[in-house]
Nucleic acid binder design. Sequence first.
DNA 1: ATGTTC
Length: 474
Amino acid sequence: MSEIKLQRVSKYIYEIPQQAGMNVPGTVFISEKLLKLISKDKTLQQVRNVACLPGILKASIVLSDAHQGYGFPIGGVAAFDLEKGIISPGGVGYDINCGVRLLRTNLAQTDVMTRRKEVAEALYRKIPSGVGRGSKLKLNRRDLDNVLERGAPHVVEMGYGCQEDYLHMEEEGCMQGADASAVSPRAKDRGIGQLGTLGAGNHFLEVQAIGEIYDTDVARVLGLSEGQIMLMIHCGSRGLGHQVASDYIKKMEHEYGIERLPDRELIYAPIKSQLGKDYLAAMAAAMNFAFANRQVITHWTREEMQYLFPDVTVDTIYDVCHNIAKFEEHTIDDQQKTVCVHRKGATRSFGPGRSEIPDSYRDIGQPVIIPGSMGTASYLLIGTRESEELTFGSCAHGAGRVISRRAALRSLRGEDVQKQLESRDIEVRAGSWRSIAEEAPEAYKDIDEVIEVMHELNISRKVARLTPISVVKG
DNA sequence: ATGTTC
């Protein structure tokens, strides 16, 4: 692998100039400190490889939380022309529609602090978590197909939550174009018992307090003030989405071969091809499973909070996707056109006025929700028109690992990590000591720095910083 | 991320 030439354009913007084989340049929106953390892995080579794909428009982009992923970098954005372009499962990620929901409560920090152990314990018991963990919700085959094609509104119809929930989600909780018949029986087998489960890894359910508000005007519209208790749900499409990704990677390798690719993990199908269309229909179905998953977890979380705090109200602020591909309108060379945007570990961050944003937020822009790692802050930001110009309307999505799971297990003990969090008044419940060690704050980048870069570039503006009180992990 | 090696 040849050395990657990186030119500094400004304090937080670097460019990989277009060279032989590349159809566009690479653009890296990052600080010097965060750039150093990815200098030894394949992130920048992956940015360059993506720039070589057919029909890519404007630039192969990574954001401040960039790190190496399967084929495409995580923290990456790539948009493709509908005629000449491609769709790639590696550009979406294995956890299709991994995403985050933020819920607002009417509780104050003081209501919860003294009961934080009880709250962590209760939520841990209520929401199934951990690898391979099943749900108490038993779906039949027909219900599952409805979930896959109709998403969150379908589970609301089944009694899990309210209309106000899905009206405050990307796509109003239902991705159009989903086709349950494009999802393999094996993927359905894996998913049927997993609706309403958190999963493992960096997925979590947290009770958080608003520590700081940066934008009082936006906070007022969203009904937020300092010291207020919020709930954050971070999870995806579980085994179902993982199986959809595996199935279509295999199908595409079989149909198109891997010989001419710079990296076999970049396997793709033309957007216009039958296989490309089939993947898009299956991906949309997996997206809907993830939307419905976060909706069911929202309902159970609301129930449990109402049991613990009888007068509590729990309202959905917004629900964002971090791993998706979508058809969207963007302006390229002063021409408006529909393109296929891959966001892999990236958050949509549309500015004010976009028709995709709920009416109540149309004037302020889209809420951008960015979870921190275990025991660290999370952020609420607001999308901007600048992001539409710079990054196809996309912002970073999280802290991103800085040492591997294996390295974390070598250097950290789960018991010590939990004690250390306890000393900072953070109560953690998880399925295993191992997952606590793997997810230790030390294993992740500095979320404050990741956010600062996005804020300084006006890709999204900071609204509020949220700090954890009770944490449920897989 | 993932029935953590179908």
